[in-house]
């Protein structure tokens, strides 16, 4: 599945819920499937800045594809990271760099993109794309 297909899948999943409590419940569930970061990477330098809750993120290049792992101390944030990882992980750096990530807006998470919200969805995306840029430049 390419990035856009995963995005479409997520949009459809979120359409099932007609209120925000439902959507968040789903997001919380998704957080439970988050590919956990190895404890040894859970260090201060792996913390993504700009989040009200702490988010640790690690990435590795495997067979030309980036694998992200992460963790957070807040459950909803965990769900959001899980969502981002589900979309971006296991793709080539170029694909990740070029991903438009329209789904964020379509599932109504845009309000969470505002910097004041400080959940750091923006910082998260930025960090993931930055990692991708680094891997691309190494090739």
């Amino acid at each position: 599945m390419n990035i856009e297909q995963t995005e479409q899948e997520i949009i459809e999943e979120f359409e099932i819920f007609n209120d925000w409590m439902g959507k968040y419940e789903y997001l919380i569930d998704m957080g439970k499937s988050l590919p956990m970061i190895d404890e040894k990477y859970k260090t201060d330098d792996k913390i993504i800045k700009g989040c009200q809750s702490r988010v640790w993120m690690h990435s590795e290049l495997k067979d030309g594809k980036i694998i992200y792992t992460a963790d957070s101390d807040a459950i909803i944030t965990k769900g959001m990271v899980a969502l981002m990882i589900r979309v971006l992980s296991n793709h080539a750096p170029d694909e990740i760099i070029n991903a438009k990530l329209d789904f964020v807006e379509k599932i109504g998470l845009t309000q969470h993109l505002s910097p004041t919200r400080s959940n750091g969805l923006v910082s998260m995306i930025k960090q993931m794309k930055l990692d991708a840029l680094v891997y691309r430049s190494q090739h």
């Binding site: 009200q52 809750s53 807040a74 459950i75 909803i76 944030t77 959940n119």
Partner: peptide, 13 residues
């Protein structure tokens, strides 16, 4: 429970 999670869910209400 993280205070951030509670803040978001209260806001939703």
């Amino acid at each position: 429970i993280h205070n951030y999670d509670l803040g978001v869910l209260l806001d939703t209400q």
